[in-house]
């Protein structure tokens, strides 16, 4: 009778489990081993939860938004080669969104599976290459499945060329400023050094996000600037439309909807930005309080 799972099955399960929890999860599954089918079923019921949990632990909304903004700005800048209104005229927003989704999913999974202590340039470079290569591959499958959602080859190539250095630098910056989520939690009795470290980290994160948000806002503003004369103030346009006044002849509803969506995204990001800024302020306040406590203790 078998007492341990077959090596091949265990090797596959091992590859699927993120390294941070691989050791104990594999051990627990091995301890519960009764038969091959039970082991496979147990692994199938456990591994998705473990991956999801690791993704949650390593996911950082600020990093995610920074990467999404960088990608969007990169592709929007690349599209200028086709003329200022290329994205609107060729309905290229959805294809760009699909490429961005592939890259962001790869980054999220890479973060979950990465060794947190590996802060090398090679890792950052590999992440970016892998994500962009898979984005290219996704374009190949899109060509077969849904050619309408395909990004023009020149735009894809130019976007990748622009995004390669930007994403590399961004990931390097994130790697060097990232703290272990387990270390951030449990702030019940942190030392002054730890509080300082957290404050510095929260402060730099808040700055990154503030600049990213500003860049995103500027990008949205400039990509919708030709609409401002038509749709500003928006409320008059809508009231007039409800009152039976026709929309201006040059008014493009799709263009306007996309601009509105961009504006709403910027607004939604502001709420995230506000909470990140508040957290940074709290981290600084904790450090100041601890310094005050120590000063009072001395005197």
């Amino acid at each position: 009778m078998e007492t341990h799972p077959p090596e091949l099955i265990e090797a596959i399960v091992e590859k699927l489990i993120p390294p941070a929890c691989r050791e104990h999860v594999l051990g627990d599954l091995c301890e519960r081993f009764e038969s091959r089918s039970q082991y496979v079923l147990d692994a199938l019921r456990t591994v998705p939860f473990v991956i999801a949990s690791q993704v949650r632990r390593t996911f950082d909304i600020a990093v995610f938004l920074s990467e999404a903004s960088a990608l969007y700005i990169g592709f929007a800048a690349a599209s200028l080669a086709g003329g200022p209104g290329f994205l609107y005229d060729h309905s290229a927003f959805l294809p760009i969104a699909l490429v961005m989704a592939v890259v962001l999913i790869v980054f999220t999974l890479r973060d979950a599976y990465a060794d947190r202590n590996d802060r090398s340039e090679q890792r950052a470079a590999f992440d970016v290459w892998l994500a962009l290569a898979l984005a290219y591959a996704s374009q190949g499958s899109m060509r077969l499945l849904h050619p309408q959602w395909l990004l023009p080859a020149w735009l894809m190539s130019l976007g990748v060329v622009i995004n390669l250095p930007v994403l590399f630098l961004l990931r390097r910056f994130v790697q060097n400023n990232r703290t272990d989520p387990a270390a951030v939690a449990g702030a019940a009795a942190a030392s002054l050094d730890e509080l300082k470290r957290r404050a510095v980290w929260a402060h730099s994160r808040a700055w990154t996000l503030n600049w990213t948000w500003l860049a995103l806002s500027v990008a949205v503003f400039y990509s919708t600037v030709n609409l401002l004369s038509l749709a500003f103030p928006f409320v008059f346009l809508v009231l007039g439309w409800f009152g039976g006044r026709p929309l201006p002849a040059t008014f493009n509803t799709d263009e306007f909807t996309l601009s509105l969506a961009g504006f709403l995204v910027v607004c939604a990001c502001w709420f995230v930005l506000r909470s990140v800024n508040r957290r940074a302020a709290q981290a600084l306040q904790k450090e100041i309080d601890e310094l005050d406590k120590q000063e009072r203790g001395k005197s």
Binding site: C21, V25, D28, L29, R32, D42, R45, T46, V47, P48, F49, V50, A52, S53, Q54, R56, R57, P181, A182, V184, A185, G186
Partner: peptide, 14 residues
Amino acid sequence: SLGAVYVTLDRLED
């Protein structure tokens, strides 16, 4: 399920 327990343990640790 064991997976649900891991998720909760991670969350409690965080």
